[in-house]
Amino acid sequence: MFIFFASFLMYLLLVWSGSGIPMIEVVIGLLMATVVTFAYKTWHPEKRLSKRGLDPRRWFGFVAYLFGPFALGLAKANIDVAKRVITGKIRPGIVKVTPALKSDVARTLLADSITLTPGTLTVDIDDAGAFYIHWLYVEDENPSEEQLYGNFAHWARRLAE
């Protein structure tokens, strides 16, 4: 049901052209949303979406995260990589950390955040939840979570678990 409403509203948002929405677009939107919902049900028959995802506090938290710590990390990352591109001073390697995250959404959020923050790039995740991270300048072969990505794991746990 959530998928249906989300895709329907997304369609309406994208066809709105400044002055009302014609009836035919609403009909097409309903058809499209139905198709998307059935496709989802066919491909993931057992998957249950968690009700906690509908909590508006999480959404506000997510927006706050996006414009607060994440934007700051992104800016820092780029200045750091810019320095490395210009000076060419690198010491690459793949390190392993194990943040205790269980849900897939939290892992995805953390992996994407890691990829877009200073000098780190997620290469692989194993079933136990260990992250293998390519680091552009290895300071420590067995790093702590703090050294790699600050408090992102804390945010991911709060937003998506």
Binding site: I94, D112, T115, V123
Partner: peptide
């Protein structure tokens, strides 16, 4: 971000070792 992750994982699984790496825990 997701595309970069996919390329990195695929190239490591296809056996491409990182050049000049000081440590490779995944290997």
């Amino acid at each position: 971000a997701t595309g970069a992750h996919a390329i990195a994982r695929a190239s490591h699984r296809s056996g491409l070792a990182p050049a000049k790496a000081v440590v490779d825990r995944l290997e």
